[in-house]
């Protein structure tokens, strides 16, 4: 144990490979985040409708997405679709689909919450100074909704980035998979590499997620009404 396991990190292009793996994880999660934000805003607006049919459907969708572990959902899309319907999706596409489905549900609920949290008198006092409906939304309702939404959406982003680590289980070569490969390859030469490699991943995730969380907290404080 004279030489530390950390040297594994600098053997060959191991560190670069880890970063590339992180890149794959980020690419998948950020694609899903962007899709979720767009679809979630639409879903959230639909959820505020008083129509019982849309209410029921969106409720079922939201609850089932929340109740089901993301891993089950991943397996369902990746393995289930192939076995039952012969639809062959790559691991990355399956991951984007699953995280978008889940993210849209969560985002939709955040949007709904932000929209209904704007009190009615905000609409009325906008109307009372002669603003048109469009102007009320543009200058009063949407800015306030965004203020309430942004910190929450950022938190959801970090959650989604972290949860992408599950996709290793459907064979996507992302940061964790790369780590396993490196550890396996050096099993005999550097037996304690696992600690160092996974430790590195811990810091990589931290470096990505911490600034995002900090920004969310900062925005929340800045906009506190």
């Amino acid at each position: 144990m004279q030489d530390l396991g950390i040297r594994v990190l600098f053997m060959g292009n191991n560190f670069i490979r880890l970063l590339k793996g992180l890149g794959v994880a980020l690419k998948i999660s950020l694609t899903a985040v962007i899709l979720s934000v767009v679809l979630g805003i639409l879903l959230g607006m639909v959820m505020t409708l008083k129509n019982p049919v849309t209410k029921c459907i969106t409720k079922i969708y939201l609850e089932s997405m929340r109740i089901m572990p993301q891993l089950v959902l991943l397996f369902l899309v990746y393995f289930g679709l192939t076995k039952s319907f012969g639809i062959n999706l790559s691991g990355e596409i399956s991951a984007v689909i699953v995280f978008t489905l889940w993210g849209t549900a969560e985002m939709g609920d955040l949007v709904r919450g932000a929209l209904i949290s704007i009190p009615g008198h905000q609409y009325e006092s906008g109307a009372a100074i002669g603003l048109t409906k469009l102007q009320i939304y543009r200058y009063i309702i949407i800015p306030q909704t965004l203020q309430r939404l942004t910190p929450l959406a950022i938190n959801l982003t970090t959650r989604m980035i972290k949860t992408t680590s599950l996709i290793v289980l459907i064979g996507v070569v992302e940061v964790l998979k790369v780590a396993q490969q490196i550890i396996e390859a050096n099993r005999y030469t550097v037996p304690d590499s696992a600690l160092w490699i996974y430790g590195t991943i811990f810091f990589l995730y931290f470096i990505v997620c911490w600034p995002i969380s900090t920004m969310a907290g900062w925005l929340e404080k800045k906009w506190k009404n």
Binding site: P119, H121, Q122, E124, S125, G126, A128, Y139, I140, P143, Q144, Q147, W223, N225
Partner: peptide
């Protein structure tokens, strides 16, 4: 018109 609730735009 001025209302009972504090209806300034908080943002």
């Amino acid at each position: 018109m001025v209302f009972q609730s504090y209806d300034l735009f908080p943002h």
